[in-house]
Design a protein around this nucleic acid. Structure first.
Lengths: 196, 196
DNA sequence: CGTTATATATCACGGTCGTTATAATTACAA
DNA sequence: TTGTAATTATAACGACCGTGATATATAACG
């Protein structure tokens, strides 16, 4: 028998690669199937329709990102946790490209938006306790505002870096993140990891 | 005779409305023509192909935004200028939705990306002198970094607010912007305009 | 007025898409 | 092994798309 979960993830990962390579417009089922090494029949067997495949793609994306963040938060710190969702290398660039494509598409697709919102709330709940201790180091600030400022900064750096990679190499993204953390009174950590 | 420039803008504005309503995927030429009150023959008469229509749509978008920012910068201040590109009302929400859709599409469409990059550089050059005087009020900071931090904050608030409008009503967007400006040592202005 | 360029409309072509039905293949159980 | 369910492949349907060819209508002008 086939492990349904693993097969679905296999197909989803193929979808990621196609979306990153050719965009959402070019991510048709035939191309995704070809990328995965199957035919469209397999996709329709494991996913009700294209929308379910896309929401699953977003869901796994968020899961992978948040678990990476949780690990980095425990092993290193807030700075390193946030760096997990910046387009610093090929894997993260793929993730953020797919993230932006699906978020953009969801703005005019209520059903897709609903699926994404569910996943996003899970991610938010997983992230909040992660830097709760850091936020409590700034007791006089409004934690809600500080958290949203940080998230906005992350999303903004990501969008700008995706649109103009030459202007925003990894080191520059991290410098902007470090400045933002320092300005917010949060621990920015000492190391920038392997990205300098 | 027909004023080519005006007719092109008329069609572009129809394209905006369709993109905002049904996304880039649903913005086919027949629908755009219907929205504009013409037929597809008219569109192909004024635009070489769909891509030229889309880059023109982005170009006019940037032009309108930057001129609004320039006016607000002169009449009010930096805070009000930045607020011109946040999704605070229907017009700005339309603009930012189209902006995000086209930026996302450009990530996997080199030709579209080139067209967008040209327009973006024009916008950057038009904006820089606008808040140069404000940036010089923080002489000990790196102006390049401060400007990029501000832009990232604007883009981040925009993306987050588009994705979750209920969580980011106009007042909250402005509050985040005001906090960011204050933190950067920039004049945040006294008034929040008509958005409270 | 007649002629020519411009503007707009109509239509069909080739191609692609998501979906569905169905056939072929494989794996498992009795 | 035989039968049944799961898995994969194939094919076709209807709909839609961008583009370009062509026809009609309108305006400009000698």
């Amino acid at each position: 028998m086939v492990n349904h979960k693993e097969r679905r993830e296999e197909i989803v990962e193929a979808a990621w690669r196609v979306i990153e390579r050719e965009g959402l417009a070019g991510a048709d089922l035939r191309e995704i199937a070809r990328e995965a090494g199957y035919t469209t029949g397999v996709i329709t067997h494991y996913f009700r329709d294209k929308r379910e495949l896309m929401t699953s793609a977003f869901g796994l994306l968020v899961d992978r990102s948040t678990s990476r963040m949780a690990r980095a938060s425990a092993e290193a710190g807030l700075m390193e946790a946030m760096a997990q969702v910046l387009p610093l290398d090929e894997e993260r660039r793929r993730e953020t490209t797919v993230w932006l494509a699906l978020v953009s598409a969801s703005l005019t697709d209520p059903q897709l938006a609903e699926g994404l919102r569910l996943r996003y709330r899970q991610a938010r709940e997983a992230m909040l306790p992660m830097f709760r201790t850091s936020l409590e180091e700034v007791p006089r600030e409004d934690h809600e505002d500080t958290g949203d400022e940080l998230l906005a900064m992350i999303d903004g750096i990501t969008v700008d870096a995706l649109g103009d990679p030459e202007r925003y190499p990894p080191g520059r993204q991290l410098a902007l993140l470090r400045r933002a953390l320092a300005r917010l009174g949060l621990p920015a950590g000492a190391s920038a990891g392997r990205y300098g």
